[in-house]
Computed example of a mutant assay.
Amino acid sequence: MALIKASDLSFFRAAQKIMEERFFQKKKWFSFVHEKFAYDAGLWFLGLPYALYWITIYSEKWFSTGSKFHSFNIAFFIYSLGLSLLVYRALFSYLKWAFPVNILSENKDTAMRHRIFLGAIVLGLITAGAQSLLKTISGL
């Protein structure tokens, strides 16, 4: 909650009303990104399972049993998981920046190209994951 310091009661009420309208009544559809534990929930239910799926796929492909590089399997898993967590954190921070909590009507919103860029990244990740999953399930 914001703190308003004012000596004039009418100014205080006007500022309070504007803040309540901005923060509580006009929530955007993407405001869940800024809620508590949104990062953690996204990590546990989206980011980590997706990363583990791809790490497993590439680990089996590049370091299969019987290959001369099989001993690098554990190191690949550890470093890939760490790199995946860093990429998730960067993308989540970028998501929060591209979709701010509120935008003042006086300011020009220039984040649309970043939103389109994020949409392309998410669409690419979903497409690649769906293709790989269908390929794995069907056995082609």
Rank of each mutant, 00 (worst) to 15 (best):
M1N: 06
M1P: 11
M1F: 04
A2T: 03
A2L: 11
A2M: 04
L3A: 07
I4F: 02
K5C: 08
A6S: 15
A6I: 00
S7L: 08
S7Q: 09
L9K: 07
L9M: 06
S10V: 05
F11G: 00
F12L: 14
F12V: 00
F12D: 00
A14I: 07
A15I: 02
A15R: 02
K17S: 12
I18E: 14
I18Q: 10
M19V: 06
M19F: 12
E20D: 14
E20I: 05
E20S: 08
E21D: 15
R22I: 09
F23D: 14
F24K: 09
Q25A: 08
K26D: 11
W29Q: 06
W29L: 12
F30H: 14
S31T: 07
S31Q: 10
F32T: 01
F32K: 02
F32Q: 02
V33N: 01
H34P: 01
E35W: 10
K36I: 04
K36T: 09
K36L: 06
F37V: 04
F37N: 14
Y39M: 03
A41E: 09
G42I: 03
G42M: 10
W44N: 12
F45R: 04
F45H: 07
L46Q: 03
L46V: 15
L46F: 14
G47P: 02
A51L: 07
L52A: 06
W54M: 11
I57V: 15
Y58A: 01
S59E: 13
K61P: 01
F63K: 00
S64T: 01
S64R: 10
T65N: 09
T65Q: 13
T65V: 13
T65Y: 11
G66S: 02
K68F: 13
K68M: 06
H70S: 12
H70M: 02
S71V: 08
S71A: 11
S71L: 07
S71K: 12
N73E: 12
I74Y: 11
I74C: 06
F77M: 10
F77E: 02
I78Y: 08
I78G: 01
I78N: 03
I78K: 10
S80H: 01
S80M: 06
L81W: 09
L81H: 02
G82Y: 05
G82D: 03
L83Y: 09
S84R: 01
L85V: 13
L85T: 02
Y88P: 01
S93Q: 09
L95T: 15
L95A: 13
K96G: 14
F99M: 07
F99P: 01
N102P: 00
L104K: 05
L104V: 01
E106I: 10
E106G: 03
E106M: 07
N107W: 10
K108D: 06
K108F: 06
D109L: 02
T110A: 04
M112V: 08
M112E: 13
R113S: 13
R113T: 05
H114E: 11
R115F: 01
I116T: 08
I116E: 09
A120V: 14
V122N: 04
V122R: 01
L123A: 15
L123F: 14
L123K: 04
G124K: 00
L125V: 04
I126A: 15
A128G: 03
A128F: 08
Q131G: 12
Q131E: 07
Q131W: 12
L134S: 08
L134K: 09
I137K: 05
I137P: 00
S138M: 11
S138Q: 13
G139S: 07
G139N: 07
G139R: 08
L140Q: 12
L140R: 09
